[in-house]
Amino acid sequence: MQTAVQRPPAHIALPDAGPLAVALNDISISFAVPGRPVFKAVAPTSLHVREGEFVSIVGPTGCGKSTLLNATAGLLRPAGGTVTVFGERLEGLNAKAGYLFQQDALMPWKTALDNVAIALEVGGTRREEARAQAKEWLRKVGLARFVDRYPHELSGGQRKRVGLAQVLVRGPKILLMDEPFGPLDAQTRQIMGTLLLNLWAQDRKAVMFVTHDLEEAIALSDRVVIMSAGPEARIIGDFPIDLARPRDTADIRLDPRFHELYRDIWNQLKAEVVKTYGEETP
């Protein structure tokens, strides 16, 4: 038994115009597994992110949220549709984007400092200069005392902070985050969320933040986008979050408006979550 989901419009209308940082136009993504029919992960769907906008993508597990980010990063070629970055069609990797991965992506053989500095050295920055900037960024994420530690000597939360510094030190125009705080405990997640918002407020990059935690999404974002359950997942809801900034990710959860928004979005998301798990129960 399936609840009839209304077919969404092909394009989700933008609340107000502004220069687009990322435009995913009718993109579809498929995976070919030998010996099986092609798996259509994402059905043709569109998403526009304006400059300086913090957009969260929420959906049930395995619905292709990360796939959407990978397509924006240029790590994955969509089967159909186009990816446009600041008005230009994306070919190859997205040089304007920084990507904070869900899993640990630090080089285990480099110290925290070198992990951050290498991001600049790759672009041709002199070593001394790169290290000075890396040190400054590690200070900003609260790791001034841990610059010489190797990743295995840091806690999960500290590694995420290094990852954040590594991404931000390059000054990307677009920030892609794939459940970056997923493996952390609840308290650390909130602290990291507040840290992220503070850093983001300084220069307001366009952010695409993937999460399965609706509360986190509302607390951080300007807009929350809902994806349907896969396969052929697509965007089925788009909610502007009109909570005042600056926000504290812990305090904001006590705001009555927060609860209203949560209820509205959850009502729509629930159907999709049930659908995913409904198919798995025997």
Partner: peptide, 20 residues
């Protein structure tokens, strides 16, 4: 993941070889 991260930093083949 480390590899994808290094690529996103903009590493070319030579830099990937040296650093990864």
């Amino acid at each position: 993941v480390v590899l994808a991260n290094a690529r996103m930093m903009g590493m070319n083949e030579r830099q990937l070889f040296r650093s990864v």
